[in-house]
């Protein structure tokens, strides 16, 4: 599905990613972990095609991403960024409808089919009662869900999420990740998410990729990857790793330095 070959990236003269090699199969659910500035967000942007690699290629379903049209990419890949600001008073339904943009032609507005997809996405995300409310008047969690619904309206094969649970309370964290997991399981959507919370990653994701200073440090399942030694080496923080009492996934507890 996605094949990253020898990708380098730098912002101007500041190198961010070095020699990234990564193969993600269709239907995988992958978390990108790593300290701030390790290149997670940049990797998400490269995968979405809004940034181009300085060297190397990214293949999406066999085509080179850099040679695809933006519209073509958007028909396959949807992105949920950390936060959108919306200067105008669009209501929730109108925002979700924006997800159909890659499918509209220049001369026609959305049709019956687009409407149905939008209603379904709103329904799935559980925001139907709020669909006439202004986007800017929603709470942070509701807004994040609306953006996820917009991404779903794109009917993506690949869903990229950049810190989808940052700034959210635990209820919204669980709701969002439950939903992403369901999409992955039931519709086979390939999910790649940059995420900070190691425990959430361990619970929801099958494959973790740990980035350090722009390189892939390790790549594997939560059980083998989330060890106290590895985490200490990447994050320079002492932790204690135990088992989650219910999910049996690794559970990382920080050890304060004071």
């Amino acid at each position: 599905m996605i094949n990253i070959k020898q990708v380098d990236f730098s912002y101007g003269k500041t190198p961010v990613l070095h020699h990234i090699d990564l193969l993600v199969q269709e239907g995988e659910m992958v978390a990108l972990l790593g300290p701030n500035g390790s290149g997670k967000t940049t990797l998400i942007k490269l995968l979405s095609g809004v940034l181009r690699p300085t060297a190397g290629d990214i293949h999406l379903n066999g085509s080179i991403l850099g040679r695809m049209k933006r519209k073509q990419i958007a028909q396959c890949v949807a992105v949920v960024p950390q936060q959108f600001s919306m200067p105008f008073a669009f209501n929730l339904r109108e925002v979700v409808l924006l997800g159909r943009t890659p499918f509209l032609s220049l001369f026609s507005d959305e049709g019956e089919q687009d409407r149905r997809v939008v209603e379904q996405a709103i329904e799935l995300i559980g925001l139907a009662p709020l669909k006439d409310r202004f986007f800017n008047e929603l709470s942070g969690g509701e807004r994040q869900k609306a953006i996820l619904a917009m991404a779903l309206a794109q009917e993506p094969k690949v869903l990229l999420l950049d810190e989808p649970t940052a700034h959210l309370d635990i209820n919204h964290q669980v709701e969002i990740l439950d939903l992403v997991k369901r999409l992955n399981r039931e519709q086979g959507v390939t999910v790649i998410a940059a995420i900070h919370d190691l425990n959430l990653a361990a619970i929801y994701f099958d494959r973790l990729i740990l980035l350090k200073e722009g390189r892939i440090f390790t790549d594997g399942n939560p059980e083998t990857l989330l060890t106290a030694e590895t985490i200490e080496e990447v994050f320079a923080t002492s932790v204690h790793v135990s088992q989650h009492p219910i999910t049996r996934s690794p559970h990382v507890a920080i050890i304060p330095r004071l």
Partner: peptide
């Protein structure tokens, strides 16, 4: 409408 989301958001929706 798509550009209301900002340049990055619009690009994610396939806007050049």
């Amino acid at each position: 409408n798509a550009l209301s989301l900002g340049e990055e958001g619009a690009a994610y929706l396939g806007i050049n």
